[in-house]
Simulated scan of single mutants.
Amino acid sequence: MIAKTYSNRPKYLNLLKIKQPLPAIVSIIHRITGVLLFFPGIPVLLCIFQDFLGSQESFDYLQKNLQNPLMMLIILPPLWFFFHHVCAGIRHLLLDQHIGVELQQARTSAYLVFVVGIMLTTLTGLLLW
Score class of each variant (00 low, 15 high):
L112R: 15
V113M: 00
Q104L: 10
V115G: 07
H30L: 09
Y111I: 09
N14G: 01
F52H: 03
L76R: 05
T108N: 13
K19F: 05
T124W: 07
H84R: 03
K17S: 13
K17N: 05
Q104E: 10
F39H: 08
I28C: 00
R9T: 15
F82D: 08
Q105A: 01
M119Y: 07
T5N: 13
S55W: 09
P23I: 05
P23K: 03
H85I: 12
L45V: 09
L66H: 13
H98V: 00
V86T: 10
I18A: 03
L16T: 04
L70T: 14
L15T: 15
C87P: 12
P40V: 04
L22K: 07
D96H: 10
G34I: 10
N14A: 00
Y61A: 01
N8L: 10
V113H: 02
F82R: 11
L112Q: 15
F59K: 03
H84M: 09
F82V: 04
L128Y: 12
I90E: 11
R91H: 13
H98W: 07
M1T: 15
L13K: 11
M72C: 10
V113L: 00
S27N: 05
C47H: 15
G117T: 08
Q50T: 15
T33S: 05
A88Y: 07
I74K: 13
Y111P: 01
A3F: 08
G100F: 00
L120H: 06
Q105P: 11
V116W: 15
P78D: 00
G117Y: 12
V35S: 05
A110Y: 01
M1A: 15
L15H: 14
I75W: 08
G41N: 04
F52Q: 12
Q50N: 13
E57P: 02
M1N: 11
V113F: 01
H84L: 07
H84I: 08
L128W: 13
P78Y: 05
A24L: 14
S27T: 09
L16G: 04
L73N: 01
K17D: 12
I48M: 11
Q20W: 13
V101R: 03
Q63Y: 03
Q20A: 14
A3C: 05
F52T: 07
K64D: 01
H98M: 07
W129R: 13
P10H: 09
L37A: 00
H84T: 06
Q56E: 06
R91N: 15
V26I: 09
I28H: 06
I25T: 10
I99C: 02
L62F: 03
L112F: 07
G34K: 09
F39M: 12
L62I: 10
R31Y: 11
I28V: 09
I2S: 15
Q104D: 06
L94I: 06
W80D: 00
C87Y: 15
G54C: 06
N14I: 13
E102I: 00
A88F: 12
I90P: 02
L94P: 14
Q63G: 13
T121R: 04
S55N: 08
I42C: 01
Q97H: 14
F114E: 02
Q20P: 13
V116K: 10
C47A: 01
F39T: 06
V101M: 03
L36N: 04
Q67W: 08
L127I: 08
L15K: 14
A110W: 09
Q20T: 13
V26E: 12
Q63E: 12
N65K: 12
M71I: 09
L53S: 02
V26W: 00
I48P: 04
I29G: 04
K19Q: 06
Y111F: 14
